[in-house]
Design a protein around this nucleic acid. Structure first.
Length: 575
DNA sequence: GCCGTTTTCGGCCCGACTGTTTTCAGTCG
């Protein structure tokens, strides 16, 4: 059985939950969670690493013991400790942990006092009013649990970054409009431009925190106030999105931004540095042992106090950025949206796009681009009117005509050709070799075995007409898992063959994902950040691809469409 | 269970809010 990283992540997470329910030390529980996180972010397959004789205990948060357990899982498909733990605990109690207000202690009490072992049991007990029989459970707690069950545990739901942007902007605007507010920022995973966002962590700088909290709970988009204190509050918006607010004095603004922007591990790494110097870092600032504030007003000052360069929010994941920030010019100079000079992947009304070639071109011009590649689907994609060789030739003619009439923008005649199951391409070599750009993508048979799927891609790379690999992992965030491939091998072969790897900017795709980008960057591949726009508005989604590139630490120089048209042509391998 | 210019033990981030309770435990981020 092929063991995927995800299998190990899930086993470790279950292990952590069950140990926590059992009352095990939080540190041991945390160790499993940390290891799960590391494996989840790896980008390389653990089974393969073991095959290659790599030492897993080198990984962050993985020691001798857990390395041995990973090996056990990979070799046998089983995890003995977990099996035993499942036998002596009540595994279904994990369900209860997904309910806000219920942690390990309460789950345990619910089980021992009322025999509750599942969400269904809990619902029944709430309905029967039995919760109040337990010491420590009052009317309010019962109400909250009841409400949490009803709203479908939405707190655990994560949403696409693109889905919360409007709410986040609206919230920031509202907070900034308040008279007692000096500054406001939505932080957390939103500010780090992560793929998904659980809730909006907002930070406000003000001399009168209580007043801000009072005004905050009056925000018209709020459905329900969960908590309200002197300097913080939690609410649920009508959209179901949770907003946590924290108000600090201006002298703590920078430290609060760092604290709430996270990621947690980045912020803890900074705290550890403070502890090493007999100092303390919290959301109010950096303090010496006499509680004298050393820094806090701005993020830069905090980083400077640690002799670190400013770390961009997208990099704050404790993936080694703190160490780099300590070196002179150690941090990459991240790519920005302004570096992009063209888009190499979009669709038109010729296949399933909603904008004509001319409309797409006009928007590209407005965006200040020098070039735009029209890359409609190939014939295999019948349901989206994929183009035949004849269609493509006609389209190429139209594109060349348009090029004569458009000033300041060059259209490239291209195609997004399907990689068929056997790794051959959906259009003949002579048709493809006539095009300016050929993107090769998988749109079918996403569930092949690792071996078959990997070979399929390697075969496509062998074809000299394959210039770009489009949305290589084929995943859709929160919808569909990535295809199962030996990513490292595919990336290595692509690099050696001069094939460009796309970062697809569609907010549902963002593909390669950031872990893949880290791996590909380390391997030295060339990237293109493309929108894959299916409408004029779609061309504006470039930022999501840029954010993934930044989270993968990419600089301008690794991304071909930051260059001139000539440099793009040079970067495209020629058949 | 991890980790180490305090390295094989003894730490492990820490503060806010809530509810139900008379001083704090549980949960959350």
């Amino acid at each position: 059985m092929a063991v995927h990283n995800r299998d190990i992540v899930e086993m470790f997470e279950e292990m952590a939950d069950l140990l926590e329910l059992e009352g095990e030390s939080v540190f041991r529980v945390q160790a499993y969670r940390q290891a799960a996180t590391t494996i989840g972010e790896l980008g390389r397959n653990v089974s393969k690493m073991l095959e290659d004789g790599e030492d897993l205990s080198e990984l962050r948060g993985v020691g001798e013991d857990l390395a041995g357990k990973i090996q056990e899982i990979v070799e046998t498909g089983n995890f003995d400790d977990l099996e035993r733990l499942r036998e002596r605990t009540v595994p279904s109690l994990r369900e209860l942990l997904t309910i806000p207000q219920i942690g390990p202690k309460r789950a345990k009490v619910l089980h021992s006092e009322l025999g509750i072992a599942s969400l269904e049991d809990l619902e029944n007990a709430v309905e029967d009013g039995r919760l109040r029989e337990i010491k420590g459970f009052g009317k309010r707690t019962e109400q909250k649990i009841s409400a949490a069950i009803e709203t479908g545990r939405r707190k655990k739901q994560r949403r696409l970054l693109s889905e919360v942007e409007e709410a986040a902007q609206g919230l920031e605007d509202y907070l900034r409009s308040l008279r007692s507010v000096e500054d406001a920022c939505v932080t957390g995973s939103y500010r780090r431009r992560a793929e998904t966002v659980g809730d909006l962590d907002s930070v406000v700088s003000s001399h009168s925190p209580a007043k801000v909290v009072d005004q905050f709970v009056d925000y018209e988009a709020i459905d329900n106030v969960i908590s309200k204190g002197k300097a913080s509050s939690s609410v649920i918006l009508r959209s179901g999105l949770q907003v946590d607010l924290r108000v600090v004095k201006p002298e703590s603004w920078g430290s609060a931004l760092i604290y709430f922007t996270g990621a947690k591990d980045h912020q803890i790494a900074l705290r550890d540095m403070a502890i090493d110097k007999d100092q303390k870092l919290n959301e109010y600032g950096l303090f010496d042992k006499n509680d004298k504030q050393l820094a806090g007003k701005t993020e830069e000052r905090i980083y400077n106090a640690f002799k670190l360069a400013y770390v961009e929010p997208e990099m704050r994941e404790n993936r080694g950025e703190v160490e780099l920030a300590a070196k002179k010019n150690g941090l990459p100079s991240l790519i920005t949206i302004d570096d992009i000079r063209g888009d190499l992947h979009c669709h038109s009304t010729w296949s399933d796009g909603r904008g004509s070639i001319e409309e797409m071109a006009n928007r590209a011009k407005e965006l200040g681009y020098d070039y735009l590649a029209i890359t409609d689907h190939s014939k295999r994609m019948r349901m989206v009117n994929g183009l035949s060789s004849d269609d493509l030739q006609k389209q190429a003619e139209e594109i060349r005509k348009l090029n004569d009439s458009i000033n300041g923008l060059t259209l490239l005649a291209g195609c997004e050709v399907d990689i068929l199951e056997d790794g051959t391409l959906d259009l003949s070599d002579d048709v493809l070799s006539d095009l300016d750009i050929v993107i090769c993508s998988i749109h079918s048979k996403m569930d092949l075995s690792n071996k078959k799927q990997t070979n399929r891609l390697l075969k496509a790379i062998e074809n000299p007409n394959c210039q770009v690999l489009g949305h290589l992992q084929g995943r859709k965030i929160l919808e569909r898992e990535a295809i199962d491939i030996d990513l490292e091998r595919v990336l290595t072969e692509a690099r050696d063959a001069g094939v460009i790897i796309e970062i697809n900017a569609d907010p549902v795709r963002r593909d390669l994902d950031e872990n893949g980008v880290h791996l590909a960057r380390e391997l030295g591949v060339n990237f293109a950040v493309n929108t894959d726009a299916h409408s004029v508005a779609g061309l504006d989604q470039m930022k999501y691809g840029i954010w993934t590139a930044r989270r993968g630490w990419l600089e301008k120089k690794s991304v071909v469409n930051t260059g001139t048209l000539n440099s793009v042509k040079k970067a495209l391998r020629s058949a």
